[in-house]
Amino acid sequence: MLLHGAYRGFAGGARDVTLDAATIGEALEGLVRAHPSLAERLRDEHGKLRPHLALFINQDDARLLGWEDAPLHDGDIVHVIPAVSGG
């Protein structure tokens, strides 16, 4: 998983984490195990992923692939990106 922008700061400056995961949801669990400080930055108190969080699998938006259920394959890079909205 490759952290971008603010999420790198939330993880104490970490750039990336390599882990085994079958889905985006599992990957996020592994990411939080590696960097517990990300737990509340990724999800609210009810476990819902926060808005303005973009997850891409290589070049594809995970929202279009099943979001937390989106499958992962060997060598995939999951990008954790602070999403920008508005104009």
């Binding site: 922008g5 603010a6 999420y7 939330f10 509340e40 930055r41 808005p51 969080l53 602070p82």
Partner: peptide, 8 residues
């Protein structure tokens, strides 16, 4: 109070 990562 922040959008990215929620407020803290």
């Amino acid at each position: 109070n922040q959008t990215w990562g929620g407020s803290r």
